[in-house]
Design a binder for these strands. Structure first.
Lengths: 198, 198
DNA sequence: TTCAGCATGTAATCTGTTACATGATTAG
DNA sequence: CTAATCATGTAACAGATTACATGCTGAA
């Protein structure tokens, strides 16, 4: 149930049309909560029905015409309530880690190319975040900007971690030689977190 | 499309029944790809239909009776193909970061309690990973275990990051005083990654 | 006047979540 | 024999993804 709240936050920061929101989700908010335009339009419809946002009056409201939304007081209240509610964070869900685990059983074909590719992606993302930080938050003073900077620093920290881990992984994998580990080594009991209790 | 491959990996490591898989997903594999028992049973059914796994012959196959599965050669091939295929990693999707962003607009009520709560969770998880590492991977030698250890080290790195970031966040938020920032400060143009291009 | 790009939307499908249903086994 | 637990499932729904459909606007 986070997408509607992501949209409310974005609309409070600036009233926007569906496509404008989509573009902003490709950049700022979307850095940690992505959404496609289909999701956004559907959710805008629901939020309007619930009376949390409204379309700004337009001369010609029609299909293909721009339609801007703003947050109503009920929407702000709903967002404030959600933001202060207890919520558990979801566990990690990362396909690359899963693939490494699979590679331990079916072989490491193409693994180092893939690690290198991901390393390049994370290095680029890290550089982007750092550019944003020095451009927009060189002297963050008010609480609002300090909170936004904190969020950005989470992105920087995460990308920094991935870069470091991928470098470690490449060194490890490069060190293993060409043996592919295709044999049925899966019969042993070793499993991260599992040896004694399986 | 990762859940079937997570299951294939787990079954190659050890043939199991649905509930056994569920328990293993609560620990090792589930640390980075979680799944409920309903998802697992549904997926086991599909994998069996596709001829990628089969149920081990049992005396009395019936409802309520344990039913163990093993991976067929076609399943191993499918997993090997998937593991070597190019795949993009999904962007970050974290509700806590979203809530910080919302808090910048609607106020920080209850935020520091929530940060403290998350900090405790991540500290506990980090300790758990570290215990697993020293217990199961004190002397990892073969490539299979080195890959599994690498995956575990990703978990350790991520939790380490979160602990550090949450400590930083608590210091920042504690430093902001009791002003709640409820004013309509959202009308300014500042947005992480957005100032010039919005 | 046609084409590219902007803008809004629908439909189908897949994945994940929550709630519930049912049978088998074992301890008291 | 009853309750707890193990074990396998079904159903309904919510959320996310992919593909497609439609209308408007301005430039070549």
């Amino acid at each position: 149930m986070s997408l509607p709240h992501a949209i409310l936050t974005a609309l409070l920061e600036r009233p926007s049309s569906g496509l404008e929101l989509t573009r902003r989700f490709d950049r700022s908010i979307g850095y940690f909560w992505s959404a496609t335009h289909q999701q956004i339009y559907r959710e805008l419809g629901k939020l309007e029905q619930r009376g949390l946002i409204r379309a700004l009056p337009s001369e010609r409201p029609a299909r293909g015409q721009k339609k801007e939304f703003e947050v109503l007081p009920a929407g702000r209240a709903e967002l404030a309530e959600w933001a202060s509610r207890e919520q558990e964070s979801k566990p990690i869900r990362d396909a690359l880690l899963l693939r490494l685990r699979a590679a331990a059983v079916v072989g490491r074909t193409g693994l180092d190319d893939e690690l290198r590719r991901h390393l390049a992606v994370h290095r680029r993302q890290l550089a982007e975040y750092e550019a944003i930080e020095s451009r927009d938050f060189a002297a963050a003073a008010d609480p609002e900007d300090r909170l936004r900077r904190l969020v950005l620093r989470a992105g920087i920290g995460l990308e920094t971690f991935w870069v470091a881990w991928l470098e470690e992984a490449l060194a490890e994998v490069g060190d293993m030689g060409d043996a592919e580990g295709m044999g049925d080594a899966g019969a042993d009991d070793t499993e991260a977190g599992g040896r004694p209790g399986e």
